[in-house]
Structures are given as structure tokens and as C-alpha cells.
């Protein structure tokens, strides 16, 4: 006999469909701030283990050594309607690891790469991964104190993202601004499936 759930959501036969958007970017670019501005629950954080494959061949042999480290994963959610629940996952991400990008991005509607225009290279790993896997994404330049260190075309050039990838500026502390950045991501998601 099949196991029966202990409870069902009151009044509904159908569980909500979870959908997600991944918010990636380097350390201190405003990911937690952005998720907390728009989440209806206080942001939750969990540690996710990652396996790093060391780039250098270590002294003891020819095999690249593997080490395990952890990275904090923030998440929040927004109830869209009775049937759809949007999860936002924020991660610093990193290049050179196996587990987490895949686990986070599989099935995602899209990605938002937050960059600080003074430290653009922190955005590379996410941009590379999203391009490679074909995940629709948008680059959001967080305007710390309203200051943009480069114009957006320079940002595009520096990140080497193609012309069809939107680059927007936003303020992670402003809910409307975070919402608009997420809407830009969803327009990309829509463009891909329709």
C-alpha cells in the first residue's frame, strides 16, 4: 500500500508548485539584502558543502586534490497564488566545484547575477555557468551609493556577455528595484520557452 500523507493542505487537493530563481554573485554584492527585501519570510540560511577541485597539481602527485568547503545559501519565498510558490536562492557561488550549481539551477526559471561594478570579476563564475547551461539570466549591477564605476556598455564588455543578455542597474535595498530585476529575469525565461 502507498504511504498516505499525514495531512493535506487545508482546502486544497493540490500541493503548490515550487519554482525558483537563483541569485548569484560574489561576496558582499548584496544577495542577502536583495532576497530579504522581497521574501515574505525572514531569510533562511543553510550551509551547503562544496567540493573544490584544486587547480594546481599538488606536490605529492599528479592528481588534483579535492577539498571540501562550505558556502552559505540564503533563501526566501514569495507565494504567487494558491498554486505557485516562488523560491529565491542566493549563493556566492564559486568556480571549480561540482555539487552546488547543478543542485541549485536544475529546474530554475532563471538566474540573476548581481555584480558590484568595482569588482566585476566576482560575477564571472555565475555568468559562465549560466551561459554554459543555457539558464536564462540577467546581470544586475548593484549601485552602491548610486555610484556606477563603469558605464553599462563597459560592464557588458568586461563580463563578455552577449548583447541579448540584459544588464540592469538596481539597488538591493529597494524592494521595487529587486522586483523589477526579477521581472527582467522572467522576461528572459518567457522568451526562451515561447
Amino acid at each position: 500500500m502507498d504511504s498516505k500523507p499525514f495531512v493535506d493542505a487545508p482546502g486544497t487537493g493540490r500541493p503548490p508548485l515550487p519554482v525558483k530563481i537563483v541569485i548569484a554573485g560574489g561576496f558582499g554584492v548584496g544577495k542577502t539584502t536583495a532576497v530579504s527585501q522581497i521574501s515574505e519570510i525572514p531569510v533562511l540560511t543553510t550551509e551547503a558543502p562544496i567540493t573544490e577541485i584544486a587547480a594546481d597539481i599538488d606536490r605529492t602527485g599528479q592528481v588534483p586534490s579535492k577539498t571540501t568547503t562550505t558556502v552559505a545559501l540564503d533563501f526566501g519565498c514569495i507565494t504567487i497564488d494558491e498554486e505557485v510558490k516562488l523560491y529565491l536562492f542566493g549563493t556566492p557561488g564559486q568556480d571549480r566545484f561540482g555539487f552546488m550549481w547543478r543542485d541549485l539551477t536544475e529546474g530554475a526559471l532563471g538566474g540573476l547575477v548581481i555584480v558590484d561594478s568595482r569588482r566585476l570579476d566576482d560575477g564571472y563564475p555565475a555568468v559562465d555557468y549560466f551561459e554554459k547551461t543555457g539558464l536564462p539570466f540577467v546581470v544586475a549591477v548593484n549601485l552602491f551609493d548610486g555610484f556606477l564605476s563603469h558605464n553599462l556598455e563597459d560592464v557588458r564588455w568586461a563580463l563578455a556577455v552577449s548583447d541579448d543578455i540584459p544588464i540592469v542597474t538596481f539597488d538591493a535595498r529597494d524592494r521595487g528595484s529587486v522586483r523589477d530585476a526579477l521581472l527582467a529575469v522572467l522576461q528572459r525565461s518567457l522568451a526562451r520557452v515561447s
Partner: peptide, 27 residues
Amino acid sequence: PSWEPLGPRPYVAGHRGVDVPTPAAAS
């Protein structure tokens, strides 16, 4: 798939790539 960036990232000193498996499904 390999982990090469699709385009040059001019600000990167050297590219950071190491081949890391990405899921067949995700790509």
C-alpha cells in the same frame, strides 16, 4: 561539457576553468 568560458572575460588574469561535470540535463 568543458568548463571553458564561452567568451573572453577580459578582466580575468588567467581563466579559472577546470573541467567540472555539468549535468547533461541542465545543458
